[in-house]
Design a protein around this nucleic acid. Sequence first.
DNA 1: AATGAATGAGTTTTCATTCAT
DNA 2: GATGAATGAAAACTCATTCAT
Lengths: 219, 219, 219, 219
Amino acid sequence: MPTPTFFNLPEEKRKRILEVAMDEFATHPYSKASLSNIVVRAGIAKGSMYQYFDNKQDLYTYILDLAAQEKITYMKQEFDREDDFFTAVERLLAAGTRFSLEHPQLGRIVANSLDSTGEELLHDLYSKGREMSMEFFENMIKLGMEKGELRQDMDPRLVANLMYSLLGQGLADYLLETLGVTMREYLANPGIWKELTPEHVERVVTEVIKILRSGLQAQ
Amino acid sequence: MPTPTFFNLPEEKRKRILEVAMDEFATHPYSKASLSNIVVRAGIAKGSMYQYFDNKQDLYTYILDLAAQEKITYMKQEFDREDDFFTAVERLLAAGTRFSLEHPQLGRIVANSLDSTGEELLHDLYSKGREMSMEFFENMIKLGMEKGELRQDMDPRLVANLMYSLLGQGLADYLLETLGVTMREYLANPGIWKELTPEHVERVVTEVIKILRSGLQAQ
Amino acid sequence: MPTPTFFNLPEEKRKRILEVAMDEFATHPYSKASLSNIVVRAGIAKGSMYQYFDNKQDLYTYILDLAAQEKITYMKQEFDREDDFFTAVERLLAAGTRFSLEHPQLGRIVANSLDSTGEELLHDLYSKGREMSMEFFENMIKLGMEKGELRQDMDPRLVANLMYSLLGQGLADYLLETLGVTMREYLANPGIWKELTPEHVERVVTEVIKILRSGLQAQ
Amino acid sequence: MPTPTFFNLPEEKRKRILEVAMDEFATHPYSKASLSNIVVRAGIAKGSMYQYFDNKQDLYTYILDLAAQEKITYMKQEFDREDDFFTAVERLLAAGTRFSLEHPQLGRIVANSLDSTGEELLHDLYSKGREMSMEFFENMIKLGMEKGELRQDMDPRLVANLMYSLLGQGLADYLLETLGVTMREYLANPGIWKELTPEHVERVVTEVIKILRSGLQAQ
DNA sequence: AATGAATGAGTTTTCATTCAT
DNA sequence: GATGAATGAAAACTCATTCAT
């Protein structure tokens, strides 16, 4: 956790530091991300960073947490308990994909967190996040089964696992690909791809839901 | 690419070097994997490594390529052009999952390769691999549509993307999770989890295919 | 020397600062003792410390001086010009040992001051303290010789040197050792070793004096 | 322990490194001693030091051990089981003092090792050395009592403690003092004080032994 | 072809001291 | 007089790569 000192900083400075740090962690795996780099780009003294955070990992976990919180907040707006299963999934998928496109850095940070192989703490963080998502999905699925919206001959945990695979970065990557853009290019300048409107996202999501709903097989 | 010198090495030595390197890259992300570690464990001089490979990346890409080749070879055995779409996917999924469980190292190497954000060459390699898989799937899907096995109102590229998400490590991870085993533990001693038989894999794969085939919705 | 500002402080605050600083210097050698640590534990701002003392060394020398003054004051109570030589030494030795046990922190500070090799100022301070003690002993010895209490065929300076070696922490360390206690443990919680009574100290001191008086040789 | 690499070094280089390191540890307390300083003065690359030693402590403990071994070897030459107690002590004291004067650095290193307050490992090393010496003295004393050379009404452990206090640096310091030389000056150029001959040492030692033997009291 | 010592730029981290508010 | 954020030089340590033997 950041020290109180960090929270006393003028907002403008605090934001600048976080942005630079996010960019660094989005464009480098944890072990290659360089604090020296960050402080130079943020225009602060090396020692200052250590008045704000205990160490590199402390900064990193805070950034990771921020990213997760922001995504959760964003998605909560879209989620409505009253929705039936497929509507709920549709909204979540759309929201998640839009989030990945609107905040490509945050998405990359989470994706890069896999770099933590061999770093106990980071691996734990990642596992915890996965477990939270999985439980959320599992509950949705069980509820859908009880309400008769879903088939009952499936293992909810297995289905949750499939959904987790699907709802990650996958769809965002696909959309970029359809425009012939690499994630690297997009990260450098996300603003210029104006075709990536919410409507565009919606169209693709609808197609995915159609498939989830009734499968791939010809009738 | 390795130098001719490397291929002139006695097979026993060549194998030892590759095995140690594979293990290192399976248990550490690229930036943390240590050449010093590898040479010590392989019992060769540090300078020798540079007579065999240009540099760390050269070694890594070769290892990555080997891993990919081995997986492709393994899966080709299972693939039969005559199969209908769902049988083919079932076989591929089962084979891929079994491969991940039988050669957890190779699987981890490929999975870890994702962490290479910011390393130009590695990112390119990953993209190339993805593109190959995607094209393969896309062709399968188009064929299935032509043969009337699949619905025709879907974008083949989008479906290919979904399949790519599904066919990764996901199912292997799920199976380990059902046994309460972490990938870390499994890597350290894969032999002792005897419940992970081909039959066990087959049962889960069948369930996934059932869902792919006819969707989640209650009839 | 502390600034006038320091002496204007409310007594309670001044004492707190000194106590924390004493503890820090008693438990760490000079170069490892941390000002940051001290200000946090004393609950004052870092800048304030620099309104009270010029720098780290200034604080340290003041603390060292305080410790020395306290020990001198304590020992002066015990010293009586009228005593014969051996009685005087016995009293000094007993008082010094009791002081080390009653104020283990102050003793440690002085002992740690030896570690300052390479720090000009501190080394000088140590030398000055040694010189003062040596002169005091030398005078005692010369007086004892004149009064016919001591043998006359000895170099008073050499005897003073031997006494200086003996009267340090040595006896206190020996007493702790007989109880199986390390100085570290004792520093953490001096109160609980109740066997270390003045009588206990007296018994050991008497033995030492006996040896000093008539040597080690069997008669 | 140094790595094999270190022992493969040309003797000339190995010696240079050790000498520079000894000087650094003799003139600075452990925490102020600087590896960067050492490598610059020894004319080697920083990384090389880490090919020879695991880390700073590894280098330090090796140096400390060397110093101890050298002193032990030196003193063993002087020790003869057949000597009576006082002769043995006389020889040990003379040898120890000569050693301190001939190798002032090694003596300082051991003395500085007290800086280890708060460094578990170093403190342990120091304790172990003290314990070894104390046991050696204790046995000498018990033997002297059995042989009737020493008074029997003394606690051998207490006498050992007194001897330990006496046999340290004390006498060497005294000799330097008689010449008006500070240890600092002597360290910088030990060669020029030619008055410090073995005979000079012997004379002082004899006086100390006389005191130890029959005490301070006038007959 | 094999060796393994040498390199040095780079990393994270510490902390006494300064100074604007 | 008090505050505490800012500083930056210096520390210990790492490791891919080079090169003389």
